[in-house]
Design a protein around this nucleic acid. Structure first.
Lengths: 241, 241
DNA sequence: CACGCTTGTTACAAAAATGAAACAAAGTTT
DNA sequence: AAACTTTGTTTCATTTTTGTAACAAGCGTG
């Protein structure tokens, strides 16, 4: 459920294979269609981006744009074999979000998909996004025992003793506490607490969670504070005071 | 009063004049800047779109992207003198929303501005908007007894006891609940809940349904929650609260 | 009713996911 | 530069989840 879904509509099966492999490696879920009819069928499922080749065997590529537009909020990127301004404009005016000309590099397609998705779903750190009051609190108390001091980047017990968290551990706990009782994926935790690119096989967040649990005395087998949501990530289940 | 505001940043005064005249006739309010410093000054006002030429006299065009990105939610369209894929990708990844190469037709620029604005502010009459609340609801209650908590990836009884669903079981139930009283094929359920290829002889969904039924106490012979549609798949028939 | 197909059940196997520990590497401080 | 701290990597162990296979039960049709 967490992967973005891309519908790629093209009768060129070789290109479909290339696109599928590349974007799957990029973390997307790919659905393919070779003509308009099956494309419309597949548009019934939840889609995030539609890659639409204009030249389809049943000649209806262009007419698909308004159909998709009225059917789904997915971003529509037109894939065309020619760099024709009129065609670009017509597509954009009919509702497409972007236009890319074959032959293109997969990196460019990937970047354009990301840009379209970014506008579709405003970044969580968008200045337009209202922050909950909790997000600006200097301290977060939980379980009647702990206080996370966000100015000091540290966690204290009720007797004022420091848990001696590293900055990384602090940030991880902070991220969990800001979304209590909500499972956060490893990728999300990574993005919230660090810079750089996330690798789906990375175990670093797991290790960090283990180290954090050890410092706050949470038992893995019957956790009261940080629960593992298997196949998803981690969730704070303690009681915010 | 309702005119969108476009900031055009370019040291080419002739082009600025052409852009200004064309876009003003198109109904926009144009603000111009010839270098980075004055561009940043003018970014303090409300902007809807920023047209950013990369080659500015003080050589800081590219670095303006993240600055604008963190400062405003305006759409950023990069205007470049060369069609270089690496440059395109770098700009898109740094936060630009689109990229257009000189020389361009004003019609194309206008259409790209409109496309960016369209994504920035989804139309109020967009048919995609309905059903969103349902699809994004954090909890789904049904049969006056159960609550599916989509943040926690878990199902709870009214006494708050967990059904202890696996993530796979949770996703399957979620998919059924999001389309109540609609028979979903095994293939559809597979596609909605998992990655990978579906094999028509696969029995995995059947097994998972059986396990789910067991956990929620649904009797196969007279089901109240999940009904088998023979030859089709499965359907949620319980009452959504 | 008989038959073939579809779905349900169950026990064990296989795969997947996560925890733990030890050492390495990278970063920071003195 | 050395010492210390933090984080990463790797390997193995453990737990959980899912799959497989075989048989049973149910359903639909001739």
């Amino acid at each position: 459920m967490n992967k973005k879904t891309v519908l790629s509509i093209d009768d060129d099966e070789n290109l479909q294979i290339v696109i599928t492999q590349y974007l799957e490696a990029d973390g997307y879920k790919i659905v393919t269609a070779g003509d308009s009819a099956s494309a419309l069928e597949k548009a019934d499922q939840h889609l995030d981006v539609i890659l639409l080749d204009l030249v389809l065997p049943d000649g209806e590529g262009l007419t698909l744009i308004p159909q998709f537009r009225s059917k789904t909020s997915a971003g529509i990127i037109v894939v065309s074999g020619k760099s024709d301004t009129t065609e670009k404009i017509v597509c954009l005016e009919m509702g497409a979000d972007d236009y890319i000309t074959k032959p293109f590099e997969m990196r460019e397609l990937s970047a354009r998909i990301k840009a379209v998705l970014r506008r579709k779903e405003p970044s969580n750190d968008s200045p337009a996004a209202p922050k909950e009051s909790e997000d600006t609190a200097e301290k977060i108390a939980f379980e009647g025992q702990w206080i996370l001091d966000r100015n000091q980047y540290q966690l204290y017990n009720k007797d004022s003793s420091s848990a001696e968290l590293t900055t990384g551990e602090f940030k991880l706990l902070e991220a969990l506490l800001l979304s209590p009782n909500k499972a956060l994926s490893r990728e999300r935790l990574f993005t919230l607490t660090r810079d750089g690119e996330y690798d789906v096989y990375d175990r670093a967040i797991d290790i960090q969670i283990a180290r954090l649990r050890k410092k706050i005395g949470d038992d893995t087998k019957s956790p009261t504070l940080i629960k593992t949501v298997r196949g998803v990530g981690y969730m704070f289940t303690g009681k915010i005071d």
